[in-house]
Write a protein that binds this DNA or RNA. Sequence first.
RNA 1: GGUCCCUUCGUCUAAUGGUUAGGACAGGAGAUUCUCAGUCUCUAAAUAGGGGUUCGAUUCCCCUAGGGACUACCA
Length: 521
Amino acid sequence: MSKSLKKISILTSASSVDVFLLIRRGRMEVRVRYAPSPTGLQHIGGVRTALFNYFFARSSGGRFILRVEDTDRERYSDESLDDLYQTLDWLGIKWDEGPVVGGPCGPYIQSERFELYRKYAEQLVRDGKAYYCYCSPERLEKLRAEQVASKSEYQGYDRHCADLTDEERAEYERQGIKPVIRLKVPTEGKTTFHDILMGDITRRNRDVSPDPILLKSDGFPTYHLANVIDDHLMGITHIMRAQEWIPSGPLHILLYEAFGWEPPVYCHLPMVMGKDGQKLSKRHGSTSLRDFREKGYLPEAIINYVTLVGWSLDGSTEFFSKEELEKCFRIENIHKAPGVFDYKKLDWFNGYYIRACENSRLEELVLPYLVKAGFIGENPSEDELELVRKLVPAAKERMKVLSDIVPLSAFIFVDEPVVDAAVYCAKGSDADNTLSALEKGSEILLSGLKEGREYGKIEEDLSSLAAGLGVKVNGVFQPLRVAITNSTVSLPLFDSISLLGLEETEKRINRAIGILEAKNE
RNA sequence: GGUCCCUUCGUCUAAUGGUUAGGACAGGAGAUUCUCAGUCUCUAAAUAGGGGUUCGAUUCCCCUAGGGACUACCA
């Protein structure tokens, strides 16, 4: 307690530069952040970034910070912000500093830091590192179109406003044009930044996007400005973000230099791709965590699998709990190359975790799906709960996702008899012996059930019957199965009967006998 | 077009200057089982290509090819 208070006071009292000196000397902990933009639902790629940051912070005794980068008010939505919190909550990822929980470097929502960015941007203008630009969006669009059409080697802003005179500026201001602030990118020299994974990455300054906008005409900062300022002010030590950001690395370094700040350490994470090698997107399948949650993936499966694309401990350990990852995650084990997201492997992990799930927990997890399917009521009765308690152990090893419970249990709640007599015939049986198998089998079965014989004994008797009729064991079981579960694929026969109840079982069998008799006449 | 990044089985990955290049998913075959699933066993499958350096390279260097990302008053 007192220790953390001390750290906070260091942070708040020391200047930003001092904070970095402390970090450099190893006196201060690792500070990393996940800084999503609430412009859509949380997706696999973002969550992977969050996870890597979180696990790196935990495994190195550092702090994990959440920052909301809501500077794009066109695309912002409350729903996205809710989804961010819900998703992290569902995964069990707690942030040490950030919205809701607060912290010494707050506020952690960029729109609440609005004034800050203008202040810094204007300082850059005063220092001659940035300038006001009055170019209209129309002019910029035309410029871009021309550059694309001519396949010009040089693409980007033409620095039209880089050297405006005071008179020209005053004229624009008089016209009421709201300017943006652009960074002056040097045209000579080169800029290098260090990436833990990639090593040094160098780019000629002339290849850095010319004079990017720092402050938009609405007064909001762009990503680059806000990101650099906040990372610095929040004492971020390591920036772990997707590799798609590599090209803006040099630009960010230029910004740190313009401010006279020490840049943090970079670690660009390999991207998550779809089967076709393109950046993972909706056309590859579900990408939002909400989708995965709704289909019935467990957080432990998502965490386990997602962490394994782009990272591995030793190449052979495959199961990791969140707690284990919080201990053993090493930044050095992150892969460089992009990885393809394999839905099948996720299914395999999910099936594994469902099978490993305590029955009582699985009952609760499965309940909403049964309610949604209309199989049981919103406020389940004790009988319904009892049914679920029987269902779960029978179904659990057959489930890949929680929603599988619906097709697996549908026969109990929806009775759609199979009227095609051929379906009742097992391979190697014909209509005649299938009918007698069903008739004789049902006698054995129903009387056995009524007498309360053990399932194992009844099963033996049914097997003997098959032998007597000269058919395979399935020649007896299949017609019974189809009669009882309305399907050739089902839970084990005795589980199905026990779920259905004796009365309903008998009804369905007799109905099936009727169907087969009608067919045989 | 320009810049930058990447490259081990279909996929996720391990390993080392000297190995039969290992594991997992998916695939195939079999066993078990009343169907399905699960479980178990077995199986096929890779160092992108070309040059070097070296006694020896998949590993180090160079080139080529392929893939990807970026190139917004979006992040």
